[in-house]
Amino acid sequence: MAITHAHASGMGGMRVAGDLVARVQMARGMKLAQAKAYVAEKLAVDVSELTDPIVMTEVRTDLGLGVVTPLPGVPKGIEAKFNIARVLDIDINCVKRFRERTRF
């Protein structure tokens, strides 16, 4: 069932920009259209490209936002989330906590 929803109507998670749109919605309380437009602007892509895995893999790689297939040296996990917070100009709770705990 989960796979059916993902294919029928889901954005596609970190294969594309689904997680980023979700983050903006959660951080700013934005409705979907507004959140998509916000993310597209920050990533300098068209809204229609947010669900294109070819475009988004390239964008995510360039900006260090985390990709499905991690290559050596590419930001992963919390590293990628530092970049996501900066690129999208939003607070990410665990990134803030990481800074506090590492006194960084």
């Binding site: 929803h5 993902a6 029928a8 109507s9 889901g10 954005m11 596609g12 998670g13 689904g18 749109v21 979700a22 919605q25 979907l32 809204v47 229609s48 669900t51």
Partner: peptide, 9 residues
């Protein structure tokens, strides 16, 4: 859905 109408899952 049509492309562009995808939603957060």
């Amino acid at each position: 859905v049509e492309p562009g109408r995808e939603v957060i899952l």
